[in-house]
């Protein structure tokens, strides 16, 4: 369902069902970046800075533009648009991984406390 404030009458919106990306320098209210898909998620990726090598694999392979990098460094996960597909975890090359899936209910602090140990078999 569309958010209430966007449900305008027939005479109120731009003719031709045109949508704008920007409103000046910020995203328009009709940009999908204003729309949450967080409720698609059953599990979420959690980031652990300790192991990250800032390779940016998670950034390039994220289908939902939800790995936010700044100055060539991993910055944060956009939990409003992340659907929890798990690709970022799958492509993470560190051992242990710097991104791990946890249930939605787990807090990120809990997740980091319960971070998996280094997989010794993998390195062998």
């Amino acid at each position: 369902m569309t958010e209430e404030h966007l449900l305008k009458g027939w005479e109120e919106f731009e003719a031709g069902a045109i949508l704008y990306s920007f409103d000046g320098s910020s995203h328009h209210i009709n940009n999908s970046i204003q729309h949450s898909v967080a409720d698609w998620r059953a599990e979420k990726p959690v980031f652990n800075e300790e192991h990250c090598i800032h390779c940016q694999f998670c950034w390039v392979y994220c289908p939902d533009t939800s790995i936010i990098s700044k100055d060539k460094q991993f910055d944060h996960i956009d939990y409003v648009h992340c659907k929890g597909c798990g690709i970022c975890v799958d492509v993470c090359p560190t051992n242990p991984k710097s991104l791990v899936m946890f249930t939605e209910q787990t807090t990120n602090d809990e997740a980091i406390r319960n971070w998996p140990a280094k997989d010794t078999k993998k390195d062998a």
Partner: peptide, 18 residues
């Protein structure tokens, strides 16, 4: 190409597009 789209989780389309 912004998030908030409705492609399935893990869809490769948006990775290619980005």
């Amino acid at each position: 190409f912004q998030g908030g789209h409705r492609l399935c989780p893990g869809c490769s389309h948006s990775i290619i597009v980005r």
